[in-house]
């Protein structure tokens, strides 16, 4: 299969272009996703990260809709549109902004299929960004995948590569339920191989990033990249680490993770989300239930401190888990 190098932003953009060309019920909604609405002489920017570039020019302003800054109204509008036959892709610029429209996600999007007892589909995609590392501060940098995954009825995906981003978006665009697509800001510009046809990546299927035999490291989004970096450093110390990227936060591929832990006997979850009651805790609980007898050491998590994301780079860099932290945590566990 022929592949080309492209960034995650480009891969997502291409997936959107192809999907919109094939299905005119797909519409995009969000703030500044066209850009320059009502501004004389403005050239459309195609979103603050360029993911929606060229969509309005190709598919028209009836299908690519810039909105007022009213997340509750336009996310709700997207939910209502999904209830009535469209397939909206709605963008929440930063995942921190779900705070202003959470009712429409928590009570409307997530519950509609259940409340209709399956009579109503809700083919909605919420695209949003996550993650720290660029000095954006506490309200533009959080990683809320665990919070969203705790809501029954939502599918939550966190790709770490351009290919997975395109593939998960393709799957979401065929799903009959609501999907939150969380795109890590630090990964938009990173190149990766993407098949020209754009791959299909099913929900609930983890990817083994690196095979190993001593410890299983579970990490999603930017943490998967950090974990992969750590593997090389660990190999120098004769530690063979297996890295599993769940890709889908919910439904979680517990079977693959548990199978890996049965092989390695150790589990470290590296996650940028909540230090308490977050995704890392969910993975550890699920694996402990399924593979307790195989564990040679207590499972561990490596998460940021239980504080909002700090602004100054010197503090933010310490706050974020990085490959040296993963190496240290792994070595601690190997010595245990």
């Amino acid at each position: 299969m022929s592949a080309v190098k492209m960034t995650m932003a480009t891969a997502l953009n291409q997936a959107l272009h192809r999907a919109m060309a094939a299905d005119d019920q797909i519409i995009c909604i969000g703030e500044d996703i066209v850009g320059g609405a009502g501004v004389e002489g403005a050239s459309p920017g195609g979103g603050v990260f360029g993911v929606t570039q060229g969509l309005a020019e190709t598919y028209g302003l009836n299908r690519v809709i810039d909105t007022p800054i009213s997340e509750t109204a336009f996310v709700g509008m997207a939910v209502g549109a999904a209830m009535t036959g469209l397939r909206p892709v709605v963008e929440i610029m930063f995942n921190d902004f779900i705070g202003v429209c959470f009712d429409q996600i928590l009570n409307q999007a997530a519950k509609a299929r259940f409340l209709s007892n399956g009579r109503m589909d809700l083919p909605l995609i919420i695209r949003t960004t996550m993650g720290a590392g660029d000095g954006s501060g506490a309200m533009h940098s959080a990683s809320l995948h665990g919070l969203l995954a705790s809501v029954a009825g939502l599918t939550v995906v966190c790709p770490s590569t351009p290919a997975d981003a395109a593939g998960l978006l393709k799957t979401a665009l065929k799903s009959s339920g609501p999907t939150v697509m969380m795109e890590h800001k630090q990964l938009y510009g990173i190149d990766g191989d993407v098949e020209l046809v754009l791959p299909n990546v099913p929900f609930g299927k983890a990817r083994t990033v690196v095979e190993g035999s001593d410890i299983t490291i579970v990490a999603a989004a930017a943490m998967a990249v950090e974990a992969e970096l750590a593997v090389g450093l660990l190999a120098q110390n004769s530690v063979s680490a297996e890295v599993i990227d769940p890709r889908t936060i919910k439904p979680l591929d517990v079977a693959s993770i548990a199978a890996s832990v049965r092989k390695t006997g150790r589990l470290l979850v590296v996650d940028e989300g909540a230090a308490f009651a977050g995704f890392a805790d969910a993975v550890i609980a699920a694996v402990t239930e399924q593979a307790f007898a195989s564990l040679k050491a207590a499972p561990r998590k490596l998460c940021p401190p239980d504080t909002p994301v700090p602004y100054a780079p010197g503090a933010e860099n310490i706050w974020l888990p990085a490959s040296p932290d993963i190496v240290k945590a792994t070595q601690d566990m190997m010595g245990a």
Binding site: N62, R63, F74, M77, G80, A81, M83, L86, N107
Partner: peptide
């Protein structure tokens, strides 16, 4: 709807569908 006012943006979505289709 069980949430006071939450049904209103949903109707905007129905309106958007009607307009788009």
């Amino acid at each position: 709807n069980g949430i006071v006012g939450a049904q209103v943006p949903l109707a905007a979505g129905a309106a958007l569908t009607a307009k788009t289709m």
